[in-house]
Simulated assay, not measured.
Amino acid sequence: MLVLDAVQTRAALPWDGLVKALGDMFAKGCVMPVRHHHEVEVPGEADATLLLMPAWQPGAYVGVKMVSVFPGNQTRGLPAIHGSYLLSSGKTGELLAIVDGGELTARRTAAASALAARYLAREDASRLLVVGTGRLSTNLIEAHTSVRPIRHVTIWGRDPKKADATAKELELQGVEVAVASDLEAAAREADIVSCATLSTEPLIRGGWLKPGAHLDLVGAFKPSMRESDDEAISRASIFVDTREGALGEGGDIVQPLRAGVITEDAIRADLFELARGSHRGRTASGEITLFKSVGAALEDLAGAVLAFEASRA
Rank of each mutant, 00 (worst) to 15 (best):
residue 54 P to D: 02
residue 56 W to S: 00
residue 37 H to M: 01
residue 43 P to S: 10
residue 55 A to N: 05
residue 50 L to T: 01
residue 45 E to D: 13
residue 52 L to S: 04
residue 34 V to G: 02
residue 56 W to P: 00
residue 66 M to T: 09
residue 54 P to W: 14
residue 57 Q to W: 12
residue 49 T to W: 13
residue 45 E to W: 06
residue 62 V to N: 05
residue 69 V to C: 07
residue 67 V to A: 04
residue 66 M to Q: 15
residue 64 V to H: 12
residue 51 L to I: 11
residue 44 G to I: 06
residue 50 L to C: 02
residue 36 H to V: 02
residue 56 W to K: 00
residue 65 K to R: 15
residue 43 P to K: 08
residue 39 E to V: 15
residue 68 S to E: 00
residue 38 H to N: 08
residue 62 V to K: 05
residue 56 W to M: 10
residue 53 M to I: 03
residue 49 T to K: 07
residue 42 V to Q: 11
residue 33 P to W: 14
residue 38 H to R: 07
residue 45 E to V: 03
residue 63 G to E: 12
residue 54 P to V: 03
residue 46 A to V: 04
residue 37 H to E: 12
residue 69 V to W: 07
residue 68 S to Q: 11
residue 55 A to E: 03
residue 66 M to A: 14
residue 40 V to Q: 12
residue 69 V to L: 15
residue 57 Q to R: 08
residue 52 L to W: 11
residue 42 V to H: 04
residue 59 G to T: 04
residue 63 G to C: 01
residue 63 G to S: 15
residue 64 V to L: 11
residue 48 A to W: 10
residue 45 E to M: 06
residue 56 W to Q: 10
residue 43 P to M: 06
residue 66 M to H: 09
residue 47 D to E: 12
residue 49 T to D: 02
residue 47 D to C: 02
residue 56 W to F: 15
residue 61 Y to E: 04
residue 46 A to Y: 06
residue 57 Q to S: 01
residue 41 E to N: 14
residue 67 V to I: 11
residue 40 V to M: 10
residue 47 D to F: 04
residue 42 V to I: 13
residue 40 V to L: 15
residue 46 A to M: 05
residue 61 Y to I: 00
residue 66 M to R: 15
residue 65 K to F: 13
residue 42 V to R: 09
residue 54 P to A: 03
residue 49 T to S: 06
residue 55 A to V: 01
residue 43 P to G: 13
residue 52 L to C: 00
residue 43 P to Q: 09
residue 57 Q to Y: 10
residue 55 A to Q: 02
residue 57 Q to V: 14
residue 64 V to G: 01
residue 51 L to V: 02
residue 34 V to M: 07
residue 65 K to D: 03
residue 46 A to G: 07
residue 41 E to Q: 06
residue 45 E to L: 11
residue 68 S to W: 03
residue 57 Q to A: 05
residue 66 M to C: 02
residue 34 V to W: 10
residue 59 G to Q: 07
residue 60 A to Q: 14
residue 64 V to A: 05
residue 64 V to F: 08
residue 59 G to M: 00
residue 48 A to P: 10
residue 62 V to R: 09
residue 47 D to P: 15
residue 66 M to D: 09
residue 67 V to L: 15
residue 58 P to Y: 09
residue 33 P to Q: 13
residue 55 A to H: 13
residue 67 V to S: 02
residue 40 V to S: 03
residue 35 R to Q: 10
residue 40 V to I: 15
residue 53 M to R: 12
residue 64 V to Y: 10
residue 66 M to I: 08
residue 45 E to R: 09
residue 62 V to Q: 05
residue 35 R to A: 05
residue 66 M to K: 01
residue 52 L to Y: 10
residue 59 G to H: 11
residue 55 A to I: 01
